[in-house]
């Protein structure tokens, strides 16, 4: 009887490890696919001239990023005090800024190539896809995509170890301090360019 229990418990452990590994492998595969989809959509966006298809591509890009997370992470604890209307405006402007960034470097993004090097699970909720990017101008640029393992959405991008979220946060901090009671004014000034 004891021997039977012993083997059953062993089997449960083996099965548990097997399912956990296959679940982790699934998260990694999905994250890798998401990154390549994202880059392909950027390439298509950059090469497209038809404005209607461009809008469609930018909507697809919007689906692949967690804009709510990005906004929360860049604004910090102040985000809780922002009203719903301001939140919507901020998120839209933040995304538009990203689209403008692609528009500014169209030639580079048309030829972007990503070489995946590793995929790692970080903690319970994050998965990092690391690799290098070649653009027309710069070769072998280190890049890390940070995704949520549950939603499989892009949370942050780190280029040459510099985090996009962190840079935005540091950039916004002094302006937020100046306009801490007037978020609409902050939005107006920050996105004035």
């Amino acid at each position: 009887m004891n021997l039977k229990n012993y083997w059953i418990s062993k089997l449960i452990i083996i099965l548990g490890v097997f399912f956990l590994n296959s679940a982790n492998a699934d998260i990694k595969i999905k994250a890798s696919q998401q990154v390549s989809n994202f880059l392909n959509t950027i390439k298509e966006f950059a090469s497209e001239k038809d404005s209607l298809i461009k809008i469609k591509r930018s909507d697809e890009l919007l689906d692949m990023v967690d804009l709510e997370f990005m906004s929360k992470a860049t604004i910090g604890k102040h985000w809780k005090k922002v009203n719903d209307n301001e939140k919507i405006i901020f998120k839209r402007k933040l995304f538009n800024k990203f689209i403008q960034f692609i528009d500014l470097h169209l030639e580079d993004f048309k030829e972007i190539k990503f070489q995946e090097k590793s995929i790692k699970l970080r903690g319970q909720k994050l998965v990092y896809v690391t690799g290098s990017i070649d653009t027309k101008k710069i070769k072998n640029l280190d890049i890390t995509w940070k995704l949520s393992s549950k939603e499989n959405k892009i949370l942050d991008v780190e280029i040459e170890k510099i985090s996009l979220i962190k840079t935005q946060k540091l950039e916004m901090r002094p302006l937020l301090k100046k306009n801490k009671n007037n978020f609409s004014q902050f939005i107006k000034i920050y996105f004035s360019n």
């Binding site: 500014l104 510099i162 962190k166 840079t167 950039e171 002094p174 302006l175 996105f191 360019n193």
Partner: peptide, 16 residues
């Protein structure tokens, strides 16, 4: 193209 080019340059330099 940043809202405050001086601040952006400072942040990028410091981080890098």
């Amino acid at each position: 193209n940043a809202q405050d080019p001086y601040l952006k340059a400072k942040i990028l330099y410091t981080e890098n």
